[in-house]
Design a binder for these strands. Structure first.
Lengths: 114, 114
DNA sequence: ACATGGTACCTTGTAGTGCAAGGTACCAGC
DNA sequence: GCTGGTACCTTGCACTACAAGGTACCATGT
């Protein structure tokens, strides 16, 4: 069963584009300094990228399983302890590769736009 | 059951990025002149974007259902007739929106990279 | 006339991924 | 010890690309 006034491409598509670079952006975010989940969401939001918890946690787990990042618990002054994420060596290497992938992709799009 | 030496993010991720902009790129491709499927794949390949038939056909159907493009049959001089795709008015409008989405996304990534 | 190779179109089943919604645990203040 | 806030995590659903397999039409050679 589908809604009759189904959403047209543009809205949906914008979300689709965001998906593709999400993992990349999260690695970018952490690369500057270690952060915890809510912190990451905040940073991405400041860059106009909307992400929610339900998306982020599974993604962080996946990145940890592939050993791109590690986490350490730290006490908070107000509330429960926080899980700070940080890039591993492999994580930094992968990020470098992804930066190239991104610029390569941007180049392709430019090429098609002309 | 997973392969033990499972593929690490970078390869997989690059594909993921491509996915996000695929629909956008296809609309871009057609926007210049009407094309048929193999033709589109060829054009994308020249821009370093790999797409296969099994991906393209369902995508074109989807775009037709949402009325972003139409098709017309034309005879070929060598082989079966070809289905040429072309943007509709709504398609051109959507494409304009997507161009903005793309540049907005690129901006966000740049913002995070700095 | 009909077999063969090439071109083009299309469908089915599978795996990966983001997201909405709901759930658990810890801390501080009243 | 109750309440509100913060933080972490899981489950079920919908969407999408892709691999693989299938159909149809045309031209050429024998």
């Amino acid at each position: 069963m589908k809604e009759p006034g189904k959403e047209i491409g543009s809205e949906n598509q914008k979300a689709q584009m965001r998906k593709g670079v999400l993992e990349f952006c999260i690695l970018l975010t952490i690369s500057k300094e270690k952060k915890y989940a809510s912190n990451i969401i905040q940073t991405l939001k400041e860059a106009d990228l909307i992400v929610v918890e339900g998306t982020l946690y599974p993604l962080l787990s996946r990145l940890r399983q592939t050993e791109l990042l590690t986490h350490t618990w730290e006490e908070s002054q107000s509330g429960p302890p926080r899980k700070y994420y940080e890039l591993t060596k492999k994580g930094r290497e992968t990020l470098a590769t992804l930066k190239q992938s991104w610029s390569s992709l941007a180049k392709s799009v430019d090429h098609l736009t002309e």
